[in-house]
C-alpha cells in the first residue's frame, strides 16, 4: 500500500515508451498546418517591415559618416547633454576606425526597425493592460514566455513562416525586446497618482483626454525606460539573428566564431557594446532631461542660439 503510489509514478514517468502527452508532436503538426495554410499572411506582414528596414538601411548607408556624426552630436547635445554628445561622437569615430562602420549601420537599422515595431505594438498593449486588469492577466504569461523561451526555440518556426533574412531577424528581435516595453508602459500608467487621476476626472475628461493629457505624459519616464530596455534587448539579439542570415555586426561575430578568428569576433562584439552604450546613455539622457522642467527650447544648441538672441525668459524676481 505505502509503495503503491511511488511505484505508480515510477511506472508512469520512467517506464513508458511513448509520452502520454505528446506535446512536441502536436506543436510540430500545428506549425506545419499554419505554414501550409497561412504562410501568405506572414509573407504579407513581411512587406511593410521589409520596406521600413530597407529604407532606413539605405538611408543610413548613404549618409556620409561625417554628417551622421554631426547629427548624432547635435541630437545628443539637444536632448541629453553636451558631455554625452562628445562621448557619442568619439565612440562612433572609434567604431569607424575599427572598420565596422557599414556593419554598424546595418545593425542600427535593424535595431531601429525592431524598436519602432516594439513601440507600435508594445505601447497600445501596455496601455490596454493598464486600463484592464483582465487584459493584464491575459498578457502577463505570454510576456513571461516571450522573455524566457530560448530564442532558438522560436527561431525555427519563424524561419518556416517568414523565410530567412532581415525580416525574420526583426521579428525574432521584436519577440525578445517587446515585453519590457509593455510591462513598463503598464506600470507607468498604473503608477500615476490617484489624486491626479481624480483631478482629471473631476474636470470632465473623457478616457481619451485622460490618457493623452495626463496618463501617458506622466508615465513617459517609465515608458522611456521601457524603450531603453527594448533597445538593449534588441542589441543582445543581434548575434542570434545573424544565425538566420541577418547581416551586420552579428554576422561579424558569427563569422569570427566559425573561422576561429578571435579578432573579427571581438571587433563585432565591441561594435555591439559601443552601440549599446551610446544608445543606452542617449535614451536615458532624453528621459532625464525631459523631467528637468526646462523646456527643450531652452537647452542644448537651440537654447544656446536662443540665449544668444536674447529670447530666453528670465525668472520673475518678486515672490508673491
Amino acid at each position: 500500500m505505502d509503495t503503491a503510489i511511488p511505484d505508480f509514478f515510477n511506472w508512469l514517468f520512467l517506464n513508458q515508451s511513448t509520452e502520454i502527452i505528446p506535446l512536441g508532436d502536436w506543436i510540430s503538426t500545428a506549425v506545419d498546418w499554419i505554414v501550409t495554410n497561412f504562410r501568405w499572411i506572414f509573407q504579407l506582414i513581411r512587406v511593410p517591415i521589409s520596406q521600413t528596414l530597407n529604407g532606413i538601411e539605405a538611408f543610413l548607408q548613404a549618409v556620409p559618416p561625417v554628417v551622421f556624426l554631426a547629427v548624432l552630436g547635435l541630437f545628443a547635445w539637444q536632448f541629453a547633454s553636451r558631455g554625452l554628445a562628445i562621448f557619442s561622437v568619439l565612440a562612433m569615430i572609434f567604431v569607424g576606425l575599427m572598420g565596422a562602420w557599414p556593419e554598424t549601420m546595418t545593425t542600427l537599422s535593424l535595431v531601429i526597425t525592431a524598436v519602432v515595431l516594439c513601440i507600435l505594438v508594445g505601447l497600445p498593449l501596455g496601455i490596454a493592460s493598464a486600463r484592464s486588469d483582465r487584459v493584464e492577466a491575459a498578457i502577463r504569461p505570454i510576456l513571461d514566455a516571450m522573455q524566457t523561451l530560448p530564442a532558438f526555440v522560436y527561431l525555427v518556426p519563424v524561419v518556416m513562416l517568414f523565410g530567412t533574412g532581415k525580416v525574420p531577424g526583426v521579428i525574432v528581435t521584436f519577440i525578445f525586446a517587446v515585453p519590457p516595453l509593455i510591462r513598463l508602459t503598464n506600470i507607468g500608467i498604473r503608477q500615476v497618482s490617484l489624486e491626479t487621476i481624480e483631478a482629471a476626472q473631476s474636470f470632465g475628461s473623457t478616457p481619451g483626454q485622460m490618457l493623452w493629457e495626463v496618463q501617458v505624459p506622466l508615465a513617459m519616464p517609465t515608458i522611456l525606460a521601457g524603450i531603453n530596455q527594448s533597445i538593449m534587448l534588441a542589441l543582445s539579439m543581434v548575434v542570434i539573428a545573424s544565425l538566420i542570415a541577418v547581416e551586420g555586426l552579428g554576422q561579424m561575430v558569427n563569422r569570427g566564431i566559425g573561422r576561429l578568428d578571435v579578432g573579427l569576433a571581438a571587433v563585432g562584439g565591441l561594435g555591439i557594446v559601443i552601440m549599446a552604450v551610446v544608445l543606452d546613455r542617449l535614451t536615458q539622457g532624453i528621459g532625464k532631461s525631459s523631467q528637468s522642467g526646462v523646456s527643450w527650447q531652452d537647452r542644448g544648441p537651440v537654447g544656446a542660439i536662443r540665449k544668444a538672441l536674447g529670447k530666453r525668459p528670465q525668472p520673475p524676481t518678486v515672490t508673491p
Partner: peptide, 16 residues
Amino acid sequence: RRTKISMVFQRFGLFP
C-alpha cells in the same frame, strides 16, 4: 463636471 462642479484637492492634484 465641466460646467457645474469643479474641485480642489487636498494634495493639490496638479498636473506636474
